[in-house]
Design a protein around this nucleic acid. Structure first.
Lengths: 351, 351
DNA sequence: TGCCCCATTGTTAGCGTTCACAGAGGTCAC
DNA sequence: GTGACCTCTGTGAACGCTAACAATGGGGCA
C-alpha cells in the first residue's frame, strides 16, 4: 500500500508524467517499467521505481482501460446473496477472479423478473464489464437472459442446459437420486418430497431426480409439496406431512410418510420442527434428507443427512469459463461444466 | 437493455461521434442529451435518441471516468461473506449504492492479517474506487486500517469506536445486555457465556455487555468459554458446559449452569446439540440465548431466543456515510452511526 | 433599426494512458 | 570502416469522453 502524498491542499494524484519528471525520463519509460517491459536498463528502472515510491503514484485505471479497451472487470448478478449457496459461490468466484487479475462487481436482484435482470445487467454494462456471471437459477430469468443478445460473454450458474449459453451447475438430478436412493435403500417403501418453487431450475431438477429414482425402483410417487426455500415454508409442508402420518393410509390413498427428501436444508429444518411439534421422531418415525449441506446442518436436531454441493468449485469454474471466453475472442460453442454433489449421511436418516 | 449491433464482423462499439454522425449533430450535443442538459431542442433530442437506439450506443465509462475524475465505484472489503451478517450487510449495501448511482466492487479476505487487508485495499485502489467500506470486525484489521493513510474515504462496519474512522455498528453491548438481562429476569442466578474469538471486536463488546449486566445485578461472573463462531466450536463449548452441569457445584466452585448466552446463533446451535446429547433439556434445565437472528433460528429445536441485528440498515447506513463524505470533499470529522438491536424471545429461554 | 440576451449548437482542448514508430548509440561481422 | 542489428529511450498520436468557450440566430425592447 503506497502512502498518499501528505502535502497540503487537495493536490491531484500524480500522473505518469510527474513520475517521469522526477525520474528524469519520459512517460513512456515509466509505462514500460510499470508493465515490466524487458527493454529498460536496470538503473533506469530503479530510478523510476524510486520516483513512483516517492510520489505514491498509482496507475490510473480509467485511462488505461480507455486505451487498452480492457476494464478487467467482471460482473456478477446474484439473487439473494444471503442464501448459503449464492454466497458461497460468490466467495469462490471472487477469489478466482482476483487470482486472474479481474475485479468483480456484484449486483443483487430484488425481484426475479426479466425487467429486474435487465436492469441489473444494464447497470453492469454501464460500468463496462467484460463479461458476467449470472447466479439466478430462475426459469424466467434464464429465459430472459437468452433473449438478450449481449455484447460480452455470459456464464450462468445453475442456469440449466436448455439454452445455448455457457454455464456451470451442480448435477442436481444426481443429488436428488443420491438422497432418494439412500432413503429407499434404508427400506422405506417410498419417499415424499418437499420441493423448491417450481420456477427454479434447481427445484425442478431435484424433483425430476427424485421422481425418476422412485419410478425406477417401482415405488409409488407421492405428490410433491412445494416450498419457497425458507424454513417457514418447510415448516408448513412439515405440518401437512405430519397430518398425513397421523391420519395414516386412510387419507386419500396416499402412501405412508416414513421418509422425506427436502429440496434444501433450511426447509428441512422447518420440516423437522413441524415433526417435532407433532410428536414425530426423526429418524425413528420419519427419516429426512436435505440438500446443500449448510454449515448448520451437522448440528440440527438430529444432524441432517444432506447432499453437499461444492459451491467454491462452482464459483471457480464459472470464472475460468468466463475468462477463457474472454481470451479467445472467437465465438466458440457454449461450454458446460457439471459438478458432482456428494451425499453426506447423518443421523436424520439412520437410527 | 439495448441491442448490440447485429452487423457482421467484430466491429468496435459505436462512439459518441458515430451517434453524432447518424443524428446529424456534433458529439457534444449527444453528450448533452445523455446528461440531460436542458438546452437541447426537443426535436434534436429525439433525433439523437433515435440514433442512440439504432446504433445500440452505450457511453464508455472509462472515457467518462477519465475526464470527470469520478469512477462512481465503491469498494467493499468483506471477511467471510458466507456468514449471515456480512452477507446481509453486503446485500443492503449494494442496494443502497446502486440507488445512489454507484457500482460496488467487493473483495473478500482469506486471512485476517494486516497484509491481507492491505492487499485487498490495494486491489480496490488499482481499480480506482472512490471510497471503501470495510466489513472486517477484527481488531488487527482495524488497527492496520488506521495505519494506512488512504487517499479516499473509508467507512468501517463493526469497526469499533476507538479509531478516528467513520463507521457503522450495531450496539453489541446493548444486545448482550438485552439477552443477559432477559435471562436474569427469568430467574437464573447467573448466565454463562460462549463468546466469539477474542480478537473480534463484536465478540469483545458482547462479552463486555454480558459481564457488565451480571456485575450490575450482583450476579457471579463465570469464566466465558471462547468459540470461533462455528457450530462446531459451540458444540465443544456445549460439551464443556454440559460436563459442569453433570458434576454440579462441586466443580471448581463455579456457579450452576442454568442459562447460557451464546455470542452467535450458529454456536448456539452447537451448544444445543451438545446439551441434547448430554440429555439436558432446553429450556427446562438450561436456557439458551443467541445473537444475530439468522433465518434458521426460529426453527431450531427449540426455537432460539436471540438478538436481532438489522444488517440491511447497517449496509444502507454505511453507504450513506460514505457517499456523504464523497460529496462534501471537506474532511469532516469522523461520523458514527449506531444501530440498536432487538431481543427476539423464543422458547429456548422460556418454557 | 440596433443592441443585448438567451437558447441552441459547434469547436477545441484536455483527461492519463498505451501503441507505433522513430531515433540514438553500441556491437558485431565483414 | 561501414552497414546491419540490437538495446534502450523518446515523440506523437490516439482512446472516447466532458468542460470551456465560441458562434449562430432569433426575440424583446428601446
Amino acid at each position: 500500500m503506497s502512502q498518499t502524498a501528505e502535502s497540503t491542499g487537495p493536490r491531484r494524484a500524480p500522473t505518469m508524467a510527474d513520475v517521469a519528471k522526477v525520474a528524469g525520463v519520459s512517460h513512456q519509460t515509466v509505462s514500460r517499467v510499470l508493465s515490466d517491459h524487458p527493454n529498460v536498463r536496470d538503473t533506469t528502472r530503479a530510478e523510476v521505481q524510486r520516483a513512483i515510491e516517492q510520489l505514491g503514484y498509482r496507475r490510473n485505471s480509467s485511462a488505461r482501460a480507455l486505451v487498452t479497451r480492457r476494464t478487467l472487470t467482471l460482473g456478477v448478478v446474484a439473487c439473494n446473496p444471503t442464501l448459503f449457496g449464492p454466497a458461497s459461490t460468490l466467495f469462490g468466484l471472487e477469489e478466482a477472479a482476483r487470482g486472474e487479475g479481474y475485479m468483480v462487481s456484484a449486483v443483487t436482484l430484488r425481484a426475479y423478473t426479466a425487467k429486474a435482470l435487465e436492469d441489473a445487467i444494464d447497470h453492469l454494462s454501464d460500468w463496462g464489464v467484460e463479461g458476467i456471471v449470472v447466479i439466478v437459477p430462475h426459469r424466467a430469468a434464464v429465459d430472459a437472459l437468452a433473449e438478450l443478445r449481449l455484447p460480452f460473454p455470459v456464464v450462468t450458474v445453475e442456469g440449466g442446459h436448455s439454452l445455448p449459453i455457457s454455464g456451470v451447475s451442480v448435477d442436481q438430478d444426481l443429488g436428488a437420486r443420491l438422497a432418494t436412493g439412500h432413503l429407499l435403500a434404508a427400506g422405506h417403501s417410498t419417499v415424499w418430497h418437499v420441493s423448491g418453487p417450481s420456477d427454479w431450475l434447481e427445484a425442478e431438477a431435484r424433483v425430476q431426480g427424485w421422481r425418476a429414482t422412485l419410478e425406477e425402483a417401482g415405488a409409488e410417487v407421492p405428490p410433491p409439496l412445494v416450498g419457497d426455500w425458507t424454513p417457514l415454508s418447510g415448516y408448513r409442508a412439515g405440518q401437512e406431512l405430519a397430518g398425513r402420518v397421523a391420519s395414516g393410509r386412510a387419507r386419500r390413498n396416499s402412501p405412508d410418510v416414513s421418509a422425506v427428501f427436502v429440496a434444501n436444508d433450511q426447509m428441512a429444518l422447518g420440516v423437522m420442527r413441524a415433526f417435532r411439534e407433532a410428536g414425530l421422531s426423526v429418524p425413528g418415525q420419519v427419516a429426512i434428507a436435505g440438500f446443500d449441506d449448510i454449515p448448520e446442518a451437522e448440528f440440527f436436531a438430529p444432524p441432517l443427512t444432506t447432499v453437499r454441493q461444492d459451491f467454491a468449485a462452482v464459483g471457480k469454474a464459472s470464472i475460468s469459463l468466463l475468462t477463457s471466453r474472454l481470451d479467445s475472442a472467437a465465438r466458440t460453442e457454449p461450454e458446460r461444466v457439471v459438478i458432482e454433489p456428494r451425499l453426506i449421511v447423518r443421523s436424520s436418516t439412520v437410527s
